[in-house]
Amino acid sequence: MQLSDRITGGMLVALGAASAWSGSLLPAVPGQDVGPAAFPMIIGFGLMGCGALIAIGIGRSFEVDDLDEPAPKTGPLSGLRVLIPPALLLFYALAADTLGFLPTAAIMVLLGAKALGAKWPLAISMAIIGPVLVHLAFYKLLRVPLPPGLLPAPW
């Protein structure tokens, strides 16, 4: 994911151009001189300017490298491992209504813990205790409606 400043700067220029252009297409409001287009266009031009400066390397001297960055994990597909958390969130969003909160959360915690290298006993006990505690806190204390699904909570 580490890209050169040239690439990220270029992406910002493109994004800025896109937002300025699509902003300029927004319809005006009758009876008003200043409409919804002004703000996205200003931001778009700002982004283009910043992107160009970044691409030519201005301001690089201010950057400080993180000195105590922990050693990266090695092994096959290690780059894709970072996508596990968003994938688990997507799974929660898609499955929670059908499966219900408790099973979905248990699967999420189990997979997350295993991916981080937990031993089976720890991962399984976390997957059982964690969702129950979270459910109690949110459903009972904070009154957030959580989907009951296949396995409704007994309280």
């Binding site: 969130l89 997979l111 976390m126 964690g130 969702p131 949110f138």
Partner: peptide
């Protein structure tokens, strides 16, 4: 606590909290 037990719970809290 070991990281492998804290991080999954944080992820769960993120999901529930943003839902809330």
């Amino acid at each position: 606590a070991p990281r492998s037990s804290v991080m999954p719970l944080i992820l769960l809290l993120c999901a529930v909290g943003s839902f809330a």
